[in-house]
């Protein structure tokens, strides 16, 4: 796409673009290239000198069982959150799409958690499910489960999934509702005239027509779980107990900060960048196909 009419001249446009360019280069390209460069270096214990070690940091990374564990943790965490938040919000959106009285009020009441910071969401949920003082821990203990997310890795992961899902429902709900409202009513009416009941209509007409939205949300949710849940994890579990909730991003942070292993941390950053670029590329290819369809 191009504009037909333009202003001429060079200096003005260059001046206009300089602030963004400067910030992008200083705070984006420079650190990103530093991360790549650092991933090939190894610093000595005091951080005084560093030597070029080729792919050694990467090799070392893939020899660590903890790295595979972080990968598995990330995979489990993101698939659970993506599944539950998509399912819950789709259910809520289909209900809100029916012409109910007070529709706008439901929407408002469901979307505001978007504004809650992930770390705050984590704090709210740890308070609710705190092993000794949590309001909801008592009923869990009453049915005989020794609930303690501070000591039990599975309990910690459950709590993380719950809080991350809670936080993400509002976002998915908004997009699903918009997607549902874009489906022409005539298509649904036609299916109804052919004798399809509400469930059948949903699975054979509405759900397929909604698939571009669902796919888009799937990618966004995975990226969300990868990066934005850092605050939730740090607030709820701090990667523990015993590393059971350390995701890939959390490990970049913990290794660089607590362990001081900058080369290894940089190598992990580079792998994460590759994952994000791959996800974005998939999304863009799909979006292009969506335009034709």
């Amino acid at each position: 796409m191009e504009k037909r009419a333009h202003f001429s001249g060079w200096t003005l446009p260059l001046l206009l673009i300089v602030p963004q360019m400067a910030i992008t280069i200083i705070f984006f390209y420079w650190p990103a290239s530093q991360a790549i460069w650092q991933s090939f270096l190894r610093e000595d214990a005091f951080g005084l000198s560093s030597e070029f070690v080729g792919f050694e940091n990467y090799v070392h990374l893939f020899e660590q069982p903890e790295y595979y564990r972080a990968m598995v943790t990330t995979a489990i965490f993101s698939s659970l959150v993506a599944f539950f938040s998509l399912a819950c919000s789709l259910l809520l959106a289909t209900q809100a799409d029916k012409n109910l009285r007070g529709g706008q009020a439901y929407k408002t009441l469901l979307i505001w958690p978007y504004a809650v910071a992930p770390a705050i969401a984590g704090v709210l949920w740890i308070f609710m499910f705190h092993p000794t003082l949590g309001t909801l821990s008592k009923p869990i203990k009453a049915i005989g489960i020794d609930w303690n997310p501070m000591l039990n890795g599975n309990h910690a992961m459950t709590l993380l999934v719950l809080s991350a899902t809670w936080k993400q429902i509002s976002y998915n709900f908004l997009f699903f509702l918009a997607g549902l409202q874009a489906i022409p009513k005539s298509v649904i009416e036609a299916a109804a005239i052919d004798g399809a009941g509400p469930l059948r209509r949903f699975w054979t007409v509405i759900f397929p027509l909604l698939s571009p939205t669902t796919f888009f949300l799937l990618v966004v949710n995975i990226v969300y779980v990868f990066f934005d849940t850092f605050g939730i994890i740090d607030a709820v579990t701090g990667g523990g107990p015993a590393g059971t909730t350390t995701t890939l991003v959390y490990k970049v942070y913990a290794d660089g900060r607590l362990g001081g292993d900058l080369g290894g941390s940089a190598a992990q950053s580079v792998i994460l960048m590759i994952i994000v670029i791959a996800l974005t590329a998939i999304q863009f290819r799909y979006v292009e196909r969506k335009v034709q369809y």
């Binding site: 984006f28 530093q34 850092f230 991003v249 960048m273 994000v276």
Partner: peptide, 8 residues
């Protein structure tokens, strides 16, 4: 996102 390049 900024998370992947935090230390640099």
């Amino acid at each position: 996102p900024v998370e992947v390049r935090i230390y640099p």
